[in-house]
Amino acid sequence: MPVQIKRAYEKADKKDGMRILVDRIWPRGVSKEEAELDEWLKEVGPSKELRKWFNHDANKYEQFKKKYKQELKENSTQQEELEKLKEWTKEHNKNLTLIFGAKEEKYNQAAVLKEILDHQ
């Protein structure tokens, strides 16, 4: 089973497995109770500068993906949180869901993280 991604505004489901928010910013209008998260890895998200540059523009997605992966390699805090994600992915046999707040469901950091986790 591959790692799943899901918007924070969608209802939690038992099939989600471990639910991990991978945004630096808490999703607007979602309470902690509604989110039903197991973990929040703020620091694994892209830097503020990269996030603002990308702005969920589908035309910039391939560039964003490269820049974000580079950030994950170079920033020790992001690296540590990515390692946690990798460990949980193994521990839970990929039965986990990366939660994100963006409206754009296809082109976002959760999709990049999913790709990394699915290919480890």
Rank of each mutant, 00 (worst) to 15 (best):
P2E: 07
K84Q: 09
K67G: 11
Q70W: 09
K84D: 13
A35N: 09
E91P: 13
K73H: 12
A12D: 03
L41H: 06
K66A: 05
I5E: 02
V112E: 00
K94F: 06
E43S: 11
G101H: 07
H92K: 11
I116H: 06
F100M: 08
K106A: 02
W40D: 06
K73Y: 12
W26E: 11
A8K: 11
E105Q: 12
K15G: 09
I20L: 13
N59W: 08
Q78L: 06
L37E: 01
F54M: 10
L98Y: 06
L117F: 04
V22C: 05
R19C: 13
I20T: 00
K60L: 12
F100A: 01
E43F: 15
E39I: 12
K67S: 15
K52G: 01
R51L: 00
H56V: 08
K52V: 13
K106E: 09
S31E: 05
L37R: 10
K86S: 15
T77G: 05
A110Y: 00
D16K: 10
K6N: 00
E87Q: 13
Q78I: 02
I5K: 04
Q4T: 11
G17T: 08
A102I: 02
V112H: 04
Q78P: 07
V44C: 15
E83M: 02
T89E: 14
N59E: 08
K60G: 08
I20H: 06
E115K: 07
K32V: 07
F100W: 00
Y61C: 05
E33Y: 11
A110S: 08
V30G: 11
E104W: 10
P46F: 06
S76T: 11
S31G: 12
A35I: 02
E80R: 09
V44Q: 05
T89H: 14
K67W: 11
S31T: 15
L50Q: 10
A58C: 05
A58I: 03
S47G: 12
R7P: 06
K84I: 15
K69Q: 07
V3H: 00
D118G: 13
L72S: 04
K6F: 00
D13Q: 07
R28E: 09
K69L: 15
Y68C: 11
E10Q: 07
P2D: 08
E71P: 01
M18S: 04
Q109H: 15
T77E: 10
L98K: 00
S47D: 02
R7S: 14
G17K: 04
D57N: 08
T89A: 12
N95C: 13
